[in-house]
Simulated assay, not measured.
Amino acid sequence: MARSVLVTGGNRGIGLAVARRLAAAGDAVAVTYRSGEPPTGLLGVRAEMTDTDSIHRAFDQVEAEQGRVDVVVANAGITRDTPFLRMSEPDFTEVLDTNLVGAFRTAKRAARGMLANRWGRIVFMSSMTYAYGAPGQANYGASKAGLLGLARSLAWELGPRNITVNLVAPGVIDTDMSRRISAERQAELMRSTPMRRAGTVEDVAEAVHYLAGDGARYVTGAVLPVSGGLGLGG
């Protein structure tokens, strides 16, 4: 039976790979996007993660098109990398509002239908930065670490209704974002990665596919690193 899935920020990179993997497994998949055109073959809905009403409208559209959302992957995120002493308060708060509070808004709206159905899967897209930090990413690291506390708190609250809440933590993944990292920093990260190479978006998508499926029905409040060993699990 096809499930209804929503992937936020699913029009490119990791989010798009996740959406395509779940669609290939037979799910009805929608993705949110802010600009440009949605990817072909997937239901695209515009949404702004800092706007609760926008998120509600996106869910309303998805529910009208493909039914109550069974699986939500909160993937949308931004960066505003700046050394801490030069980081403005908006640099900090805008990243948290999108990455952390946006995930809260998304999960809260998704939980409505999941609670009624007594089944659901919530997957937050974090980063190994949650565990080891990174220079110039005090805002991003704080947002990704915050997702762990959010996921584990929700795991307690929603678990009795057969809703799992988990975290995927990618390491260095070959994306447009990672290609902007300096060669020096890339080399440093590879020295800290036992597998000595970057991962692919498909690697992350497989982890999400597992957590969203029946095989992970007894897994909740967990962090699944997809990092080639970077941080060795945090």
Rank of each mutant, 00 (worst) to 15 (best):
R68T: 14
S126K: 09
I173W: 06
D53F: 08
L115M: 04
I14G: 02
R121V: 05
A23F: 08
Y130D: 08
L147V: 02
R21K: 15
A107F: 06
G221M: 08
T106K: 00
H209W: 11
W156E: 10
M114D: 09
G136P: 07
R161L: 06
G67E: 05
R105N: 13
G159C: 10
P83F: 10
T220W: 13
E184K: 14
D176Y: 01
V226A: 13
R197C: 01
G149L: 02
Y210K: 03
G13S: 11
N11M: 01
I14K: 03
A58Q: 02
G233H: 12
V18Q: 07
E184S: 14
E188S: 06
L100D: 03
G136M: 09
S4T: 09
R3S: 10
Q61E: 15
G9M: 02
L43G: 02
D70A: 08
Y132W: 13
G9H: 05
D60A: 14
L147Y: 05
A183K: 04
P39D: 05
Q186W: 14
R185Y: 15
I163S: 04
T40K: 13
R118A: 12
P39Q: 09
V201D: 09
A28G: 07
V226N: 13
D174C: 09
L43W: 01
K108F: 11
L6N: 03
E202G: 12
E89R: 12
V72L: 12
A74D: 00
V18I: 15
E206C: 07
P170I: 01
D176M: 07
N99M: 10
V223E: 14
D60G: 05
N117V: 04
L85Q: 12
A107K: 04
A212Y: 03
G141F: 06
I173C: 08
G36C: 12
D174I: 03
E48T: 07
G149Y: 03
G9W: 10
G113H: 08
G10Q: 14
A110G: 07
V72A: 03
V201C: 15
F84R: 04
